[in-house]
């Protein structure tokens, strides 16, 4: 935690109280001048801090920023958020977290930013990340599981994001295989997971999570591959980003702990309950052609199980799945 975060944390633990400069200086082990400097930085960020002679500083109002001290305050997690690093602006939270991971950051480290200047998705696609409206965060995991099972984490983060949207924003988010989060067919979240591993050992996995929370219609770029939406556009209500992030981290924490002890089955069941195409007739585009069948569920590795029209079972490992009308052959 930075000095700024520690001061903020002091204010948070003493709501509506004056804290003297001397007290802050003593508890943070920094000079009075440094305290004054940090208070100035906080004010520049939009915090309203009253300074009263002989009594000290008091926090009056807080801007809508995602700050490490606020995220850690009251967070009920075993693993997630052990360390939280927040930035007003960053190139990409995945890039920053990767750097920290390579320097040995602990499992559960979270990087969050109010804006990304180079937010990205799959295969270098851009992820629109305007200031202060959405959630852009990355979470570091160091699971001791076989490399082959790491892609199961894709489903874990998809389930946690969809369930948190449903809980906090009272929506009915669905998952599309493997990890698109859709509201009535429009994309609300982008999840980009990156792994660093050798043949037999995972060094780390980064769960990158972007969720359109309070984005307005004019903030979406004109050219998008998929129809997109935000929680605000769907419900008409502004989402408290801090509350949302804490709920999301707590949900990820529960499911990750469960995954480490009980394996993939509970996540698989939850994912199937949220899936938008269970038992539906679909077409799967696979580059060299397409196949048709009925979605049966996930297999133990996360491949989509599809019963082809000729009755044969097929495991889908890649491809775009879209619902189609079944053509009656008889």
């Amino acid at each position: 935690m930075t000095s700024r975060d520690k001061i903020l944390s002091l204010f948070r633990t003493h709501p509506d109280h004056y804290i003297s400069g001397q007290e802050i200086s003593r508890s943070l082990k920094i000079s009075r001048a440094a305290v004054w400097k940090q208070v100035k930085v906080l004010r520049e960020l939009g915090f309203e801090i009253e300074a009263k002679h002989s009594q000290g500083y008091r926090l009056l109002t807080t801007p809508d920023l995602l700050l490490a001290a606020d995220i850690e305050n009251g967070l009920d997690c075993q693993i997630m958020g052990q360390s939280v690093v927040s930035f007003p602006e960053v190139d990409s939270t995945n890039v920053q977290l990767r750097r920290l991971a390579e320097d040995g950051a602990l499992e559960g480290t979270v990087v969050v930013a109010d804006r990304q200047s180079a937010g990205r998705g799959r295969l270098g696609r851009r992820w629109e990340s305007p200031f202060g409206v959405n959630l852009y965060c990355s979470i570091l995991l160091r699971p001791q599981i076989p490399v082959q099972q790491a892609s199961q984490l894709t489903f874990l983060s998809a389930v946690a994001v969809a369930e948190t949207l449903n809980k906090v924003c009272h929506m009915s988010a669905k998952v599309k295989w493997p990890n698109d989060i859709l509201i009535d067919g429009a994309k609300i979240s982008g999840l980009l997971n990156e792994m660093n591993a050798e043949t037999e050992q995972i060094h780390f996995v980064i769960l990158g999570i972007g969720i359109n929370l309070n984005m307005t219609a004019d903030q979406f770029p004109d050219e998008l591959k998929y129809p997109a939406t935000s929680a605000f556009l769907e419900t008409g209500e502004t989402v408290n980003r801090l509350v949302f992030l804490q709920e999301l981290l707590q949900c990820l924490d529960r499911y990750y702990s469960e995954f480490l002890t009980d394996g993939f089955i509970p996540i698989r069941r939850r994912w199937e309950n949220l899936c938008n195409m269970m038992n539906m007739h679909v077409e799967i585009e696979q580059g060299h052609g397409s196949i048709c069948g009925t979605v049966v569920g996930l297999d133990p590795e996360g491949a989509l199980r599809v019963q082809l029209d000729n009755g044969q079972m097929e495991r889908i490992l890649a491809g775009d799945v879209t619902p189609v009308d079944k053509i009656d052959q008889e």
Binding site: E194, M195, E198, A303
Partner: peptide, 25 residues
């Protein structure tokens, strides 16, 4: 990539690329 999990394959030592066995995508 396996189901949206991207694994960067890195060179474990300094080397020269002799043959690329698999095509893109």
């Amino acid at each position: 990539e396996a189901m949206k999990l991207f694994n960067e394959i890195e060179a474990e030592f300094k080397c020269k690329i002799i043959e690329i066995v698999k095509g893109d995508a």
